[in-house]
Amino acid sequence: MSFVFVLISSWAKCIVRVNCSYCFRPAKLIKAKELHPRKRGWLYICYNCKAHVGCHRGTREPLGYLATKDVRRLRHRCHKALDPIWQSQIVTRSETYEWVAKVLNLPAEEAHIGKLNKSQCQKLLVATKQLKYQFYGLLQKGDKE
């Protein structure tokens, strides 16, 4: 993803140029309903690879990197596994994503599910499962004592 600043009138407007994560061709910005009739907002799509990524609500800023269907499914599974950890309020969301960065050996700014590739998603799912077993095991041991 690269940023280009264009001077329009007397103020600068940031235009995001998004390239496909697979073929590196420029992705096209379309209305989400063109691909998913019930969805709102925008998404970037690579028609060559059939990869796409949605945008943050009310913006044209991508949520992460373009992904194929199998990677989007893995990312969804990662969210289902990881989100309850920080939503439980036992740890913060920031602490959870610091753990993700450590597990995947990534810089903090890259430790977002929307930026993960297939192997990173698979590794995160295994690590999250192990963490839950450890956590629940500690809880059960603590309850018995």
Rank of each mutant, 00 (worst) to 15 (best):
S88I: 15
A67M: 00
F24A: 08
L106F: 04
L35M: 15
H79V: 10
K28P: 00
G54H: 03
K31H: 15
L116D: 01
K129T: 10
H112R: 08
F3L: 15
H56T: 13
Y22S: 08
L74H: 03
P37Y: 10
R73N: 12
K123E: 06
R72L: 08
L66Y: 04
L82E: 04
W86A: 11
Y65L: 14
M1T: 11
L35A: 11
C78M: 01
E98P: 02
R60M: 07
H36I: 15
C46V: 15
H112A: 13
S88P: 04
Y47M: 12
K39D: 08
T68F: 00
T92Q: 05
P84Q: 05
E95F: 08
L116G: 02
K69Y: 06
P84T: 12
R73D: 07
E95L: 09
S119N: 15
R77P: 00
L63T: 12
H56L: 14
H56M: 13
Q89K: 06
H52K: 03
C78Q: 02
L124Q: 04
F5S: 15
K33W: 11
E95D: 08
L131T: 06
F3A: 06
K39M: 14
F135C: 03
W11A: 14
I113E: 00
A127K: 03
E95C: 06
N48P: 02
R40C: 10
L74F: 01
R40H: 12
V53L: 00
I113T: 14
V18M: 05
A67C: 02
H52M: 03
H56N: 07
K118M: 06
L66H: 01
W86Y: 14
S88G: 08
C78S: 03
L139T: 06
A12C: 12
T59F: 00
I113L: 02
L138F: 11
L131G: 01
N19S: 08
G142Y: 09
P62T: 09
K144E: 09
A81E: 06
F24L: 15
K39R: 10
L82T: 09
S10V: 11
Y44V: 09
V103G: 00
C14F: 03
K31S: 12
K129H: 09
F135L: 14
R72Y: 06
F135E: 01
C14M: 08
Y22P: 00
A111G: 04
A51C: 12
Y65R: 14
C20A: 14
R75N: 12
E34I: 10
R17D: 15
Q130K: 13
K118H: 13
H56K: 09
Q140I: 08
S2C: 07
L131Y: 13
K129R: 13
K80P: 00
T68Q: 03
D143F: 10
C46K: 03
R38V: 13
L63V: 04
F5W: 09
A108V: 15
L74Y: 01
K50L: 08
K129C: 05
K144A: 15
